[in-house]
Amino acid sequence: MLINTKCFGEIDLEENKIIHFADGLMGFEDYKKFTILYDIEDEKKSAISWLQCIEEPGLALPVINPLHVREDYNPTIEDELLKPLGDVTSENIVVLLVVTVPNDVKKTTANLKAPIIINSDTRQGCQIIVENQDYSVRYCIFEENREKKGERTC
C-alpha cells in the first residue's frame, strides 16, 4: 500500500508494518494507524526514528528507544493497561519515548512519563502514563545540560 508522508514522500508500506492504536496517542486520539520509519544515512540507523501516522501525512513524531536516553529506564506500568495489546512478553514488547527537538538541538528532551508501548506480535500499541514519580515529561537527552543544571530536565 502506498502512503504519503510530509518528510519522506510517498512510501510503499506492507500491511504488516501498520501499528494500531485503539485509543490513538495523547493529543492525537482521532488517528489510529501508524508505522515506524527510520532515517538511514550511510547505512547507519539513527537513534531517533519516526512514528508516522498513516491517516495524516503531516503527523510524524520523533521517537527513541528509552535505553538510548536512560540506561536504567524501568517504568512501572499497571498490567491492566497492557491487556488491550495482547500477551506482552519481553520478546515482543517495544517501548519508545516521544522526543521534542527545539531550535537549540542541545535542549532536546524525551518524555519518560508517557512511553509508547507496542506489542510487535499483534501490532497493537498504546501510550500510557507510568506510575514512576521521578520520570519527567521533559527529560534532557544531552547529559551535559543535565549536569549544568543539576537536574534531569532542560
Rank of each mutant, 00 (worst) to 15 (best):
N119T: 11
E147A: 14
Q52F: 04
G58C: 07
Y135R: 11
V99Q: 06
A22T: 13
V95T: 15
E43S: 08
L67G: 03
Q133L: 08
N111R: 08
N16I: 00
L85H: 00
I77G: 02
D104G: 05
N65L: 12
H20M: 11
R123K: 15
G9K: 10
R146F: 05
D42M: 09
E55A: 06
D134L: 12
P115Y: 07
Q124I: 06
D121P: 00
N145C: 08
E91K: 11
L112C: 12
I54Y: 00
N92L: 12
C154D: 05
C126W: 01
T76V: 15
K107I: 03
C126E: 03
I129H: 04
V88T: 05
Q124H: 14
N92W: 11
P115G: 06
F21Q: 03
V105Y: 11
E91P: 00
V101T: 15
V94S: 06
K6I: 10
D104W: 08
G24E: 11
Y139V: 04
V95D: 02
E78Q: 12
L51P: 00
P102L: 13
Q127R: 10
C53A: 09
G27C: 10
I3Y: 02
I128K: 08
G9N: 04
T35W: 04
N74F: 07
L67T: 09
L51Q: 05
E56N: 13
S136W: 05
L81M: 12
V69E: 00
A114M: 14
R70D: 08
L82F: 06
E144R: 07
V130S: 04
M1N: 05
I11F: 03
L81D: 09
N132R: 05
I116R: 05
S49H: 03
C53K: 05
E151R: 13
D121F: 08
C140H: 04
E71M: 12
E147F: 08
E71G: 06
L25H: 02
L2R: 11
